[in-house]
Design a protein around this nucleic acid. Structure first.
Lengths: 236, 236
DNA sequence: ACCTGAACACCGTTCAAGT
DNA sequence: ACCTGAACACCGTTCAAGT
């Protein structure tokens, strides 16, 4: 009946049970990123994730210790891809701007990354340490004295993670479809309604708000700090 | 039997039911702050809060719409107390430093405030808008052109909330008792163990870490931005 | 070794019922 | 008007049991 011994052997020897897509840390993290991107920060659930991976919630715990590690791994994957090694032929200032913009754009695409960065400490936290390292090397390249290298790199990092948190919060504050200028216009209107005594400054600048470009504004802040670190790009 | 008609009347006229401590928004927010301070960010629970207030969890919803509003109100109470109106006889720079330090110290005392500030948007968020207003007024007092006032005030705010998030994360990373230098020493040791290729800068400065004073470092960052905004305190 | 899914110990929030 | 507390619809995580 069976005219091919080898075929039959390979077909029956072991049940093999090779699933179409065996579970793995990588596949889990990948699915978590997709879930976070599509369903938002609250959408990452072990049940939803298990469903997407066609398994039970308990299976995930074989590959990952818990939700914290999962969120951490997802953030690290995005940040690592967003912050590439510095190009060789740029000024330190431009390399710093490129690193900062990389983080900025990653948060724009994945707002939940901003939330994670804003609430993570540098105590062995890979994503934020990665950014700190890139910024710090360029601070060294600027030739600032060793004693202030930490201060300068920290200032840049804190500013970047501060913006990260703000942008994530803004993304959370509006329904997913809303575009930038619509959001800014609404915010400007709300600011213009504030108490004139208590919020004099905020009301003053409310009118400028809708014309702002977040990316430009972000870079302007970086440049403010860069100026503080090294007053001019090249010695006069 | 009853020799005092008036007393008896007041005792029986209405059941009165005047509780020792009637529930109120203020008492709820106050209890929430205590709970957050003592039990940490995860300690604020409607059940725990209800127990502390000797009532059921449902009762709280009569005075507050939900957990978000409660967290918001608690943060606002702390921030409002921490950021007093500017003194009249100081330079704008000193007023900015005072505001920033007020926030810094508030987070030191209530780490959960840092988490909240780092994840709140300026879209009508009272606590963060309060800080923005104070910083912005002083930026105006510096005499910077109107077009860059927003940029300058935003840079300061983003830096402050970035540090806020970092400090809250650091507080979360250690058990409540740990003191500052112990934490920094542990972190420095971890940094010194990182991959020498990938984390050259972080390893380089790891040794400086235990000697750092967070407050001094924080102010140095503020001064970097202030220098960027207005290169010298008074025109030469 | 890896997966399954029911079960546990929580949450925030609601709501009929009381006073 | 204000409070009560059981109940609902979720969570993250565990773990005996399977393959």
């Amino acid at each position: 009946m069976c005219h091919n011994g080898r075929m039959a052997a390979t077909r029956t020897r072991r049940p093999e049970r090779r699933r179409e897509h065996p579970l793995s840390r990588e596949r889990i993290v990948e699915a978590a990123i997709e879930l976070l991107d599509t369903a938002g920060e609250g959408g990452l659930t072990f049940r939803a994730l298990a469903e997407r991976l066609a398994t039970g919630p308990g299976a995930i715990y074989w590959h990952v210790t818990g939700k914290d590690e999962l969120l951490h791994a997802a953030t690290d994957a995005v940040v690592a891809a967003a912050v590439p090694p510095a190009a060789a032929d740029t000024t330190p200032q431009d390399a710093i701007r490129a690193t900062a913009l990389g983080v900025f754009d990653a948060i724009d695409a994945h707002p939940w990354v901003g939330t994670q960065l804003a609430r993570s400490s540098m105590d062995m936290d890979a994503p934020i340490l990665r950014i700190f390292e890139r910024l710090g090397r360029q601070v060294q390249a600027l030739g600032v004295p060793r004693a202030v290298q930490f201060t300068a790199a920290s200032a840049l990092l804190n500013y970047v993670v501060g913006v990260a948190g703000q942008n994530a919060a803004n993304a959370r504050a509006v329904e997913p479809g809303t575009d930038r200028t619509e959001f800014l216009t609404t915010m400007a209107a709300a600011w213009a309604d504030l108490d004139p005594e208590e919020y004099r400054f905020v009301r003053d600048i409310a009118g400028d708000l809708p014309r702002h470009d977040d990316r430009v504004e972000f870079l302007a802040g970086i440049d403010l700090i860069l100026t503080g670190i090294a007053p001019r790009e090249r010695p006069a």
